[in-house]
Amino acid sequence: MGTSLTTEFWERFSVLLVLALAMTAILTAVFTALFDAFTARLRGRRPHRTTSRIPRPRVPHDRPTPVHH
């Protein structure tokens, strides 16, 4: 007993396929925008350090730098 796919099936299938593709595109755009905003906010809170964390001794500017021999 064979069954054939009717035109009603193909109409519903095509409508559901287009809806699934549209929802996928919309959700991808929304989550990408949210993720980009979240990572930008995180990077703004913790700036990348370019200097070392070792404190350097302060040298007064009114005296010349001592020279050791």
Rank of each mutant, 00 (worst) to 15 (best):
R43D: 13
L5K: 02
R58M: 06
H48R: 13
A20E: 02
M1P: 10
F13Q: 09
L17R: 13
S4P: 00
D62C: 09
F13R: 01
T50G: 12
R43Y: 10
W10Y: 14
R43F: 14
F38N: 06
L27Q: 08
P47M: 07
E8D: 11
P64E: 08
H68Y: 13
H69E: 06
R56C: 13
F9L: 03
H68W: 12
H61E: 07
H68G: 10
P55C: 01
M23W: 05
R56Q: 13
P64V: 04
R41V: 06
H68M: 10
V59Q: 09
P57D: 01
L27F: 15
T24R: 04
D36W: 06
A40S: 09
T51G: 15
L27D: 04
F13H: 06
S14C: 07
H69V: 07
P47D: 03
F31Y: 05
G44K: 01
P47A: 10
P47C: 02
D62P: 00
V59R: 14
R46K: 12
R49V: 11
A25D: 01
R46Q: 12
F13L: 01
T32M: 04
P64W: 06
T51I: 07
A29V: 02
T39W: 10
T7I: 02
R45V: 14
T65E: 12
I54S: 14
R53M: 11
S14I: 00
R53V: 12
F31K: 00
I26D: 03
V59G: 08
T28M: 07
P57W: 04
P55Y: 02
R45C: 11
H61G: 15
R53E: 12
R63D: 03
A33I: 01
R53L: 15
E11N: 12
W10F: 15
D36I: 06
S4Q: 08
A25T: 05
P60S: 09
D36P: 00
I26P: 01
H68K: 05
M1F: 14
W10A: 12
T32K: 01
T7W: 02
R49H: 11
A33S: 05
V59A: 12
L17P: 00
H48V: 15
V15I: 10
S52F: 01
T28E: 01
E11G: 12
A20P: 00
L34A: 14
E11W: 04
F9E: 02
T6H: 01
L27N: 04
R46A: 15
V67E: 03
P57N: 04
T3Y: 12
F38Y: 11
T39R: 09
V18S: 15
T28W: 05
R53H: 15
L19D: 05
R49L: 13
F9T: 02
I26S: 13
A33Y: 06
L21G: 09
P57H: 04
R12C: 09
T50P: 07
H61I: 08
I26K: 05
P66G: 07
T39K: 09
P66H: 05
A29E: 02
